[in-house]
Design a protein around this nucleic acid. Sequence first.
DNA 1: ATTATATTTAACTGAATGGTTAAATAATAG
DNA 2: CTATTATTTAACCATTCAGTTAAATATAAT
Lengths: 148, 148
Amino acid sequence: MQPSPAVLNKTFSALADPTRRAILSRLAQGESSVGELAAPFEMSWPAISKHLRVLEDAGLMKRERDGRVHRCRLEPTPMKDAAEWIAFYRRFWEGQLDALANFLENTSDKEIQNWTSHKPSSKRRSSSSAPSRPRAKKSSARGRKKKR
Amino acid sequence: MQPSPAVLNKTFSALADPTRRAILSRLAQGESSVGELAAPFEMSWPAISKHLRVLEDAGLMKRERDGRVHRCRLEPTPMKDAAEWIAFYRRFWEGQLDALANFLENTSDKEIQNWTSHKPSSKRRSSSSAPSRPRAKKSSARGRKKKR
DNA sequence: ATTATATTTAACTGAATGGTTAAATAATAG
DNA sequence: CTATTATTTAACCATTCAGTTAAATATAAT
């Protein structure tokens, strides 16, 4: 099954932080307690705790409580999904443009849209290729005070 | 060469937004003007403009000005880097744990740390495996007023 | 020259991030 | 029971983010 947009959002944004990436690389060497994970960083424990929560939330890590120590382990599935999402573009960096063109010919826009987890475009504001201008939705008529 | 942490930060955080991913998938179908890219979205043009700036900043997109229209094209190198970073963990989701163990035995911690672009840990606060408690750096002695 | 089109910049806002310190919770050890 | 250890929660703060509207800029068309 294709990963939902929300899953990709969480995964990529979890991976966007170098501390979290370092934590993952630590976990790649084996299970680890929170304290062990925190040790190498010049950062308070609550900060690490939050990072772990983000990783866990993204499904990149799971924890098992063993007494008072939380043992953390890598959970690679979301990375696999991210890798698959990115793999679509491999054709580009490998310069196999013909293969891509071929693929695109046999695949409807809809499928690609879905697969790239683009939120369903509810209303196209103009069917022409170049829309007129940024139409004001939900006009709020607030004061526009130029403070700076 | 290994991608720098900063590059991975930018790449992953650019990919963390569904609008930006959708823009990339559009660009995968060929070059496109800003207006064409903006059309499918229920979003103002400045918003899209900002997304494009983020993508450009991350090196995922380049633009060529052609008269008054900016023609955007996909630039896949950062995705390649991201894919390579993630590929390290492929061993996990493919369940080739033996291969990983083998790899780790022949690779120093330092190399892995570098490669995973973890900021150089300046001072370990304790050499034991479980440090004592989150030491207070830069104590600020501010009032701790419980407002909520 | 005037008008229209494509796109950005400026100024603002609300919500999310990433960090902090102090206190709370939970489990183990003495 | 009391103290210690491991970890989280709470409250706060500064910065970044994703969006908005209004105005500016640059090119093209009439």
